[in-house]
Amino acid sequence: MIIEIICIVLVLSGLLFLVGGAIGIIRFPDFYTRMHAAGKGDTMSVFLILIGVAIYQLNDFSIANLLVAGKIFFITIFIMWAGPTSTHALIKAGIDEGQKVWTREDKKGKPDA
């Protein structure tokens, strides 16, 4: 029972951060700030959801479930290393392509322009 409550709390907070990332990628004005929402919102939310699922999986304990929880934990470790790396690669590509940085001065520009 208490394991289910822990799982529900972790998954719900992960979903909250996913909502933050999804709204951020729509609302933020230029490519670089969108990169902030994409790169950070994903790491923590995926971490929370997968840890919640792994804890629920350990509810009835056996060797097979322990291996599955180990694999899920491996995926979270991989996401926490690969997320920042692909963020560097993509934002470097944006710099090389010559994306404009949105500044406070261009009032006329709509956020999407």
């Binding site: 692909s86 690669a89 590509a93 710099i95 010559g98």
Partner: peptide, 24 residues
């Protein structure tokens, strides 16, 4: 997914060689 995003980022690598960083 990781490999795909790295490959797509690599595609833009030498588009703008003189690297003038926008307007900031």
């Amino acid at each position: 997914n990781f490999i795909g995003s790295l490959a797509a980022a690599r595609f833009f690598d030498r588009v703008n060689p003189d690297k003038q960083i926008a307007n900031l």
